[in-house]
Computed example of a mutant assay.
Amino acid sequence: MKKKPEVTAVTKEKLMASFWKFYCGKKIEKITVKEITDEAGYYRSTFYDYFTDIYDVLEQLETGLIHTLKENVQSSLVMKQQNDIIKILATMYEERGEYLSVLLGKNGDPNFHQKLKDSLRPMLFEEFGLPKSDMDIQLIIEFGMAGIISTITYWYDNGKRIPNEELAIMIRSMLLEGTMSLISKRSSFDLIERFGQTE
């Protein structure tokens, strides 16, 4: 008899939650299917109804996170609320931060950071009409995306000590004004004078 969709969804969710519990504590190559199924309360054969192997669980989990992020960003772009993109990322961190922080952290998946940027890059080029073949533009976009992701990760890992709205304003200011300019404004040390103006 065919299982009901809601039943299969719950089963898959439990298996993924079980995987995640182990993934947060040890390297993926040390996790076994038996551990996952024992923790979730299923037989090993049930695991293979949903996943090909341990790495497939991680892949599906990452794909789901990136899909949610892309949907939120695309929705913002359609509504012409470009200034809210950074806030969307910060808000998603508040909702899915446990996953994102681990995946982007030192013990997480080294490929996830690149996957995240690869999912955002085409949308940014298309929305702002940027030439995809221009290496200068590519480097600037890469710098911006890496900075945004790293800053939000650091904010989350350090207790989210400022509201996400304030974080979004700060990141936007860094992108528009430059980091050295903002540091100089907030301290007595003039970084621009120290490092020199750009040509």
Results as ranks from 00 to 15, higher is better:
K106L: 14
A90G: 09
Y156R: 07
E127P: 00
S101P: 07
F112K: 03
S75H: 11
G25E: 14
F22T: 11
I149S: 04
F189M: 12
K14Q: 15
T52N: 15
A146S: 13
Y23L: 11
I162Q: 06
T46W: 00
M1E: 11
E142Y: 03
M180F: 09
N107K: 11
R121M: 12
K160C: 14
Q82H: 14
G108K: 05
K115F: 02
R121G: 04
T37W: 02
K70Y: 12
E165M: 07
I192C: 09
E193W: 00
T63G: 12
Q60F: 05
R186T: 10
V57I: 05
L77S: 11
F143M: 12
I88E: 11
E98A: 12
K132M: 10
T153W: 08
S133D: 14
A9P: 01
G178T: 06
F19T: 01
S18I: 02
Q74C: 15
Y23M: 11
I88D: 11
M123L: 12
P163T: 08
G41T: 09
I66W: 11
G105L: 08
V10E: 15
R121H: 02
N72A: 15
E177P: 01
K30V: 09
T46D: 04
L65W: 02
N83G: 14
P5N: 11
H113V: 06
R172F: 04
Y42M: 03
Q197T: 10
A168T: 01
T11N: 12
S133Q: 12
D134G: 04
E165N: 13
S150H: 12
F112L: 09
V57S: 10
I140G: 06
G25W: 00
L69M: 15
Q60W: 00
I183S: 02
W20P: 01
L15R: 00
D56P: 08
I85Y: 05
T37H: 01
L167G: 02
R172L: 13
S75C: 12
K26V: 13
Y154C: 15
L120P: 06
S188R: 10
F128P: 01
P163Q: 08
L61K: 06
V78N: 09
R44L: 03
D53A: 09
K2S: 13
T32Q: 11
I169N: 08
V73H: 05
M123K: 03
S76G: 15
I141R: 04
K132Y: 03
P110S: 07
N164L: 09
N72W: 04
F128Q: 07
I171G: 01
I148C: 07
G178L: 02
R194E: 10
M180W: 03
D56Q: 10
